[in-house]
């Protein structure tokens, strides 16, 4: 098997180039999750309690995000958010040009927009899986609603949500690979730039592939460990 067409030194070098994109990938993922989790949670509550206007908006919002490809959401938002911002800036006389905004900020907005919608469904099903009796019992011993949620309901819902959260996080990391379209210097873009020099596309994409694989498997492993810890209460010994 003659694999000499693979440029080995390039393969190794580009691996580290690809790795250098990991921090940005992780940054975008982390910030997006930070914004999306509370947003998704409260919108999920609005769906469960059927709060009038917000309920409807949330439903349409989720339908749009789930019904359209991410790349198209990226294109639409990347082309429309600057227009919206320009409008806001002019109304409030902010002397700032939209063209000076680093693509990273757009990245945060776009990916949190996408992830929040996914999380609404994740939280809805997780909260729904917790027996209503738990909330009733908490209220009957005198806990306020907030306390009941924080101390009783959410911990139990979390166990159900974790596998889906893991999937959502992994999907988010994969989605950031599309960040090249808005010039985010994440994994894919960096390796592609390196590949363009000598046309070593095969090697570059093998490296990109490996980096994502390692990243995703690490994330899955961490989630599994976390899930095991959460499940302690189910198997507690007397």
């Amino acid at each position: 098997m003659d694999l000499s067409f693979i440029d080995l030194p390039f393969l190794v070098d580009t691996f580290f180039v690809a790795l250098s994109g990991v921090p940005i990938t992780l940054l975008v993922t982390a910030v997006s999750l930070l914004i999306a989790i509370p947003l998704g949670f409260f919108l999920a509550l609005s769906r469960i309690y059927e709060i009038p206007v917000i309920n409807r908006i949330a439903k349409i919002y989720v339908s749009f995000v789930r019904g359209t490809p991410i790349i198209i959401q990226i294109f639409v938002l990347y082309n429309s958010v600057p227009l919206i911002l320009t409008g806001i800036f002019e109304t409030y006389n902010i002397n700032y040009s939209v063209y000076d905004i680093h693509p990273l900020w757009y990245g945060f907005i776009i990916f949190s927009f996408n992830t929040a919608a996914i999380l609404i469904e994740v939280f809805r099903s997780a909260l729904g899986a917790v027996d209503k009796g738990q909330l009733e019992a908490a209220q009957s011993v005198g806990l306020t609603n907030t306390q009941a949620y924080l101390r009783i309901v959410i911990p139990q819902a979390l166990v159900v949500a974790v596998p889906n959260l893991c999937t959502a996080t992994v999907n988010l990391i994969k989605a950031t690979s599309l960040g090249y379209a808005i010039s985010l210097h994440e994994i894919t873009l960096k390796a592609k730039v390196a590949a363009n020099v000598g046309y070593n596309y095969v090697e570059a994409y093998i490296d990109i592939f490996i980096v994502y694989l390692i990243l995703c498997m690490t994330v899955e492993y961490l989630f599994k460990v976390y899930e095991k810890r959460l499940k302690r209460f189910r198997y507690a010994k007397v």
Partner: peptide, 15 residues
């Protein structure tokens, strides 16, 4: 499950 679609696309296309 761990591979983004465009990475897979390019891997197949070039590979």
């Amino acid at each position: 499950r761990c591979t983004p679609s465009i990475v897979l696309l390019f891997l197949v296309y070039y590979g």
